[in-house]
Design a protein around this nucleic acid. Structure first.
Lengths: 272, 272
DNA sequence: TGCGCTATGTGCGCGGGCGCACTGACCGAT
DNA sequence: ATCGGTCAGTGCGCCCGCGCACATAGCGCA
């Protein structure tokens, strides 16, 4: 109702696909040996747009490492008051609370962009965690990034107007989907931003008039990324920076070795 | 200017006081042997109201375990747009990011209620962490609680009116200060809630008229706690519950043994 | 006793976002 | 070709909180 079929099932576990762990930056940052062990417990699944992977307070059954799709974290006070507080793409994972030894999900998780993900059973994941300090270390850093994002989100939501926040979300989704085309209706955007659909319509129209985006019937295209960055609040740049500083340079104890980003992209170039 | 002298120094390390580790619930939850080792590195300090213990992005020098005072975590986009996103009292600690292997503070930390705290140097704390799985485990659960609070804070700030949020804060501070008298000006409250002082005045006056609180010149007294709970948003109850479920039952690996929440409350009843 | 500072009270006009409700445009299926 | 459904555009009155500015009132100190 509020968003496309929240109960839509996740696609069935797939067999081989072209996707691989390489697509997930967290997995890529784990030392090969650890990763191999982890991957033996993983299966590839297709995340279906709108699927609800878990509900606030419910038990976590699987941990997901997106390798194409992305997931949004939603904090809901009740069905009228809800707000997206985090976004998980190829740079992250769903289920960090297991790291803290907590088996319940703190937030609702909704698939926002369809695509594949690797998943692993919660129990197997916990076993892997308890065996591997490096795994813990790497994922903890991500947990920290998520926390920083949460705090920033709170402030951003409080102080910035819908239009800037919309621009920010579109950019974040572009980064996570790695595509300038995003499938999202105003309705869904309103759900995420915690505002009325009418408010989204107004903001989106304004962005479209300025030729920064184009949209129609649930498909948004980013035309001018640089312009959109300018139209967004500084939180977009800040968020990208936090991530870059803590993770994209390798993730594993780089602080000691000063490694560089193997993927070569400079996340700081938040550019167009 | 915006709040009482942010650069006020923390009181000098004290020697023996009547306060003890027993006053901090996290420390109390750690097995005795571990705690003893940790305490050898601790010193007692007096937190001075308004002191800034660390700034967003700066290096963490000490970890604090309040045993009387309490600390607020503030996310600042710039000096006009800032918002309190967390509150740390005897139930918590300042410096969790070290758990994630990150040496920089994600948020500004301001002393909100004067009182003693135990503190330990960051390096010593990290060493202790790396030696003790139980310590990690216990504190990780707290990290999780903080995260949940952050997410809830974002939603609360977005959807609830100033008066309810004010009531909530007063209650949270009462719990952490364990006193119905709280030293806080409207100015400072406005700083935390991210609203104008005038907004706080109006809300406070309304609460006072309803005989829930009384205040004058920087001192707020809670007259009717139960009434104040009713005037607050459900986030107060929800936050207390999260904490209780995860930490107050002992904190140490109870989940691994399949124990149940000894307090017997149903966590699902988050909506009144 | 009086000064000055800090804390609180209040007014006014503005604007963003809300709730509600209806219209119009486009798409796919029968 | 038509119909039903989803998606987007728009209007209207409302209210909360903002920004600004000024008016009182306690309190400490000289």
């Amino acid at each position: 109702m509020d968003h496309p079929d929240p109960r839509a099932a996740t696609g069935a576990p797939g067999v081989a696909t072209t996707a691989s762990w390489r697509e997930n930056l967290l997995l890529a940052a784990i030392p090969a040996a650890e990763r191999r062990r982890l991957l033996t417990h993983c299966e590839t699944v297709e995340l279906a747009f709108g699927a609800q992977l878990c509900e606030q307070g419910e038990r976590i059954r699987h941990v997901y490492f997106p390798i194409g799709g992305f997931i949004s974290l939603i904090s809901a006070l009740d069905e009228r008051s809800r707000l997206e507080v985090g976004l998980i793409g190829i740079e992250g994972m769903l289920g960090v609370s297991l790291l803290a030894g907590v088996g319940d999900a703190p937030l609702r998780a909704l698939v926002q962009g369809s695509g594949p993900a690797l998943r692993i059973e919660a129990a197997a994941f916990c076993r892997a965690l308890s065996r591997s300090p490096v795994l813990r270390y790497t994922l903890m850093r991500y947990l920290y990034v998520l926390m920083s994002q949460l705090a920033q989100m709170a402030t951003c939501t409080r102080f910035h107007v819908v239009e800037a926040r919309l621009a920010r979300w579109l950019l974040m989704m572009r980064d996570r989907a790695r595509s300038d085309e995003i499938n999202l209706t105003h309705e869904f955007l309103a759900y995420m931003l915690g505002v009325r659909r009418a408010g989204v319509t107004r903001a989106a129209r304004s962005l479209q008039r300025r030729r920064l985006i184009r949209y129609s019937r649930g498909k948004v295209t980013i035309l001018d990324g640089a312009g959109l960055v300018r139209a967004s609040c500084e939180c977009y740049a800040a968020g990208a920076q936090i991530y870059e500083r803590l993770l994209s340079t390798g993730g594993r104890r780089r602080s000691a070795r000063g490694q560089h980003n193997r993927h070569g992209r400079n996340p700081r170039s938040i550019r167009a």
